[in-house]
Simulated scan of single mutants.
Amino acid sequence: MGKTKKLIELDDKAIEILEKQAKLQKRSLKNYIEFTLEDQALRFSEPSEEYKAIMDDMIKQMENGTLKTTPLNEVLKKYGREL
């Protein structure tokens, strides 16, 4: 896959925040920004075949009445949280 260069402008506060995050991950600012943008782009892409298969299975279970779910309030309660 090819690469394209783009000039971007960010305000000083954003750069300061991103530099701190880059240091926490032991990355350069440039590498951190590239990694973060590529990761975000992948999130916008089509779901993987594995994920689609899992969702298709859940839809079948729901249609058959065999899908087991847990109400949100019970999950939150289990972890000591509330709505």
Rank of each mutant, 00 (worst) to 15 (best):
A53H: 02
L76S: 00
K77G: 03
L76R: 09
D57C: 01
K13Q: 07
L42M: 07
L76E: 04
G2F: 06
L7S: 05
D39L: 11
L67K: 08
T66A: 05
R81Q: 09
D57G: 13
K60Q: 10
L83M: 09
E16H: 01
L83W: 08
Q25T: 02
E38Q: 14
K5Q: 15
Q21K: 10
L76K: 13
E74M: 12
M55T: 11
N64W: 00
R27P: 01
L37G: 13
E38M: 05
Q61I: 14
Q40R: 10
E49W: 06
N31I: 01
E16T: 09
I54E: 13
A53K: 11
M58R: 14
K6P: 00
I59N: 09
Q40K: 11
E38S: 06
L72D: 11
G2H: 07
V75W: 15
E82K: 08
N73D: 10
S45K: 15
I33Y: 06
N31K: 11
T69R: 10
Y79C: 09
K60H: 08
Q25I: 02
M1Q: 07
T69H: 03
S48Q: 08
K60S: 06
N73R: 10
K30R: 10
E9D: 00
E9P: 05
K68N: 02
M55H: 14
E46L: 06
K30V: 01
S45M: 12
G2L: 04
A14S: 01
L7K: 02
G80C: 14
T4M: 02
E63V: 14
A53I: 04
R43A: 10
L76F: 04
I54F: 09
I54R: 07
P71M: 00
E82Y: 04
E49R: 12
K5N: 11
K23D: 15
G80H: 12
T4A: 01
P71H: 03
K20I: 07
E34V: 09
Q61D: 09
K23A: 11
L67W: 12
K13H: 15
L76Y: 09
M62T: 07
P47M: 01
L42I: 01
Y79M: 05
I8F: 03
V75N: 08
K20H: 10
L83E: 08
I59M: 09
A14P: 01
S48D: 13
